Measured scan of single mutants.
Amino acid sequence: ETFPLDVLVNTAAEDLPRGVDPSRKENFLSDEDFKAVFGMTRSAFANLPLWKQQNLKKEKGLF
């Protein structure tokens, strides 16, 4: 299941849709939104070091 970017960005855990893991908001973006937000594919993002993934998520309001 995916959700629009505005539902996930800068949203407190208690305000997220049911079933969304607040530590993994990026997994609930569509592939198109994911690429638009991070400028890379999911596989490229997954290959980044964890610290870099976290920094990007913070920068984009998805942490």
Rank of each mutant, 00 (worst) to 15 (best):
A13D: 15
N55I: 12
D21Y: 03
L5T: 04
G39P: 00
F3A: 03
E14M: 06
Q54N: 14
W51L: 09
T11N: 08
L50V: 12
G61R: 03
K25H: 04
N27E: 14
K35W: 15
G19T: 09
T2V: 11
F28R: 05
F45K: 00
T2P: 05
F28P: 02
P4T: 08
T11W: 10
E26S: 02
P17Y: 02
F3H: 08
V7I: 12
T41E: 12
Q53G: 00
V37M: 06
G19F: 09
V9G: 04
L16G: 05
R24L: 09
T11L: 10
S23N: 14
N55Y: 13
L16E: 05
G61N: 06
G61I: 02
R42V: 02
S23T: 14
F34T: 00
P17N: 05
L29R: 01
K58L: 08
A12R: 14
D33W: 05
K52P: 00
E32K: 10
N55F: 12
A12F: 08
N10L: 07
M40K: 01
P49G: 02
D6P: 06
M40Q: 01
A12D: 10
Q53Y: 01
T41Q: 07
P17V: 03
F3V: 06
D6H: 15
K58P: 00
F45Q: 00
T2N: 06
V7L: 15
P4Q: 06
P4C: 07
L50M: 12
L8C: 06
R42P: 05
G61T: 01
Q53S: 01
L56G: 00
E32V: 10
L29P: 01
L56C: 04
R24D: 04
T41A: 09
E32W: 08
R24Y: 12
E14K: 15
Q54P: 00
R24C: 13
N55P: 00
L5C: 09
N27T: 09
F63E: 14
L8K: 03
M40W: 01
K60I: 06
P4I: 04
A12E: 09
F34K: 00
F28H: 14
K52R: 13
K60L: 10
L56N: 01
R24V: 09
W51S: 09
S43L: 14
F28Q: 04
N10Y: 06
D33A: 06
L62T: 01
V20S: 05
R24F: 14
E32I: 11
K25C: 08
D21P: 03
L16P: 07
P49M: 02
F3L: 12
T41S: 13
N55S: 14
G39Q: 11
Q53C: 01
N55C: 15
D31N: 08
